[in-house]
């Protein structure tokens, strides 16, 4: 008759595991993104491997979506953290946008197969590495929000640094692209790719902004 809404310890651990797995998926997506761009730029690119990479990122994105739904569902159905519920849901949704954007970029590379001159490869790889680092730090910062909020600021600061670096790389690359002797169509296509890649870091930066506010609100 008197139902006390105590989630059992095991239930709490299950949710904690799901949150951990969700953050793992974001880190996996970031690592795969860096690897896949390296692969797409490589000379011995073959169609089957490209397909496998695309499938892999789709799988990660799908699992992240499923985890996001499970987490949201558990938070609402068990009315956990009522005062932080809206913030957590917003954070999870924002983080999910990162994996979605990574999936979009990889898919575009896979479908459009843009012609990228060799002279841009290093700059593009640098940009991708900065973006992947930015995303990884964001995932660690978000994980810390749930486990040890004292280090959230350290990681969000790294997110900001990496985002600034990616912005700088993006500007250099954009200038180089439009200064090159490629066709205008190629220039525009490549510019769109670079912009989409940089957008990943921008989304991570927005997440960091939100996270810092939520962390302040988490104080008792």
């Amino acid at each position: 008759m008197f139902h006390i809404k105590f989630p059992m310890i095991s239930q709490s651990r299950t949710l904690e595991n799901k949150l951990d797995n969700f953050h793992d998926k974001i880190i996996d997506a970031a690592a795969l993104f860096h690897r896949s761009i390296k692969f797409f730029l490589g000379e011995n690119e073959n169609q089957n491997e490209c397909k496998a990479i695309n499938k892999q990122i789709k799988h990660i994105e799908h699992e992240a979506d499923q985890l996001r739904r499970d987490i949201e569902n558990e938070l609402y159905s068990r009315n956990l953290l009522p005062n932080l519920q809206a913030d957590i849901l917003q954070l999870i949704e924002s983080l999910d946008k990162i994996t979605n954007q990574i999936d979009d970029v990889i898919y575009k590379f896979y479908i459009e197969k843009p012609q990228i001159p060799n002279k841009f490869h290093n700059k593009l790889l640098d940009l991708c590495e900065q973006v992947a680092d930015c995303v990884e730090n964001m995932a660690i910062a978000s994980r810390a929000f749930f486990k040890d909020k004292s280090v959230v600021r350290d990681y969000t600061h790294k997110v900001y640094i990496k985002e600034q670096e990616s912005d700088s790389s993006y500007n250099d690359l954009k200038k180089a692209i439009f200064a090159s002797d490629m066709d205008l169509a190629n220039k525009l296509q490549l510019d769109l790719f670079v912009t989409e890649v940089t957008n990943i870091a921008d989304i991570a930066e927005d997440c960091a902004d939100e996270l810092l506010i939520f962390t302040l609100k988490r104080d008792i």
Binding site: K5, S12, L80, L81, K147, I220
Partner: peptide, 22 residues
């Protein structure tokens, strides 16, 4: 006191919620 304990023990947020209910 509560704040000190929470900072020192680093209890995860979800478990903190459960302890708060208790």
């Amino acid at each position: 006191m509560t704040r000190f304990i929470i900072i020192k023990t680093k209890i995860p947020l979800i478990r903190q919620d459960m302890y708060t209910r208790f």
